Amino acid sequence: MGIETQRENDGQTLVMSIQGFFDFSLHKDFRQAYKGVEGVRRYVIDLSQTEYMDSSALGMLLLLRESASDQGAEVALRNCSREVRKILEIANFQRLFTIEE
């Protein structure tokens, strides 16, 4: 459980896969996964293995978005389960992030 990262598109895309519960317990690992990473134009958060997310996860995504926009990068959310998509829609995150199938 936790976070796995990998690079795509010649290193310009950083994919962060969240396994299990996306909550405050992942705060430090989530931040370390993207802080200080060079040359990234796009961050993709893969939520295909995310069972649950809470409000602290939403806050972490907003912090990532802020950090990414400072670098001129974008953030996309990918492979959301129905439950996770519902949480994102309630929070109106489709207005702030690209949500991919």
Rank of each mutant, 00 (worst) to 15 (best):
T50C: 15
K28Q: 15
D54E: 07
Y34F: 13
M1T: 10
L88W: 04
D46M: 01
S17W: 04
R78W: 06
V75T: 09
N92M: 10
E89P: 02
V40K: 07
N79V: 03
L77M: 05
R7G: 12
D70I: 07
D10F: 00
K35W: 02
M60G: 06
L63W: 06
R78T: 00
E38A: 14
E74S: 14
F30Y: 05
A76Y: 01
I90N: 10
F97T: 11
G36S: 06
Y43Q: 11
R65N: 15
M53W: 01
S67F: 10
K28H: 14
Q49F: 03
E38G: 07
S56L: 04
E38D: 14
R82D: 10
I90W: 02
N79W: 06
L63T: 13
R65V: 00
V37W: 03
A91I: 04
Q49W: 01
F21E: 13
R78L: 08
M60S: 08
Q49C: 06
I3F: 04
V84E: 02
S25L: 05
G2K: 02
S81A: 09
I90Q: 12
E38I: 12
V40E: 05
R65P: 01
D54K: 02
A91P: 05
Q19H: 14
D46A: 02
N79Q: 13
E100G: 09
A91T: 03
I45H: 12
E101H: 08
F30V: 02
Q6H: 15
I99D: 00
V75N: 08
D29M: 09
A91Q: 08
Y34V: 12
A57G: 07
Y52R: 03
Y34K: 10
C80P: 14
E4H: 12
I3K: 05
G11K: 01
G39W: 02
N79E: 14
N9C: 11
K28E: 14
V40N: 05
L14N: 06
Q32F: 11
M16G: 05
F97R: 08
C80R: 00
S48A: 10
E100C: 09
K86V: 10
C80V: 14
R85W: 07
L62N: 07
T98G: 04
C80K: 01
D29C: 01
E38V: 15
M60I: 04
A73I: 02
S69Q: 15
I45F: 11
F22W: 09
L88A: 07
R31I: 06
L14E: 02
T5F: 01
S81Y: 07
M60F: 09
E4T: 15
R7V: 02
V15S: 07
M53F: 00
F30E: 05
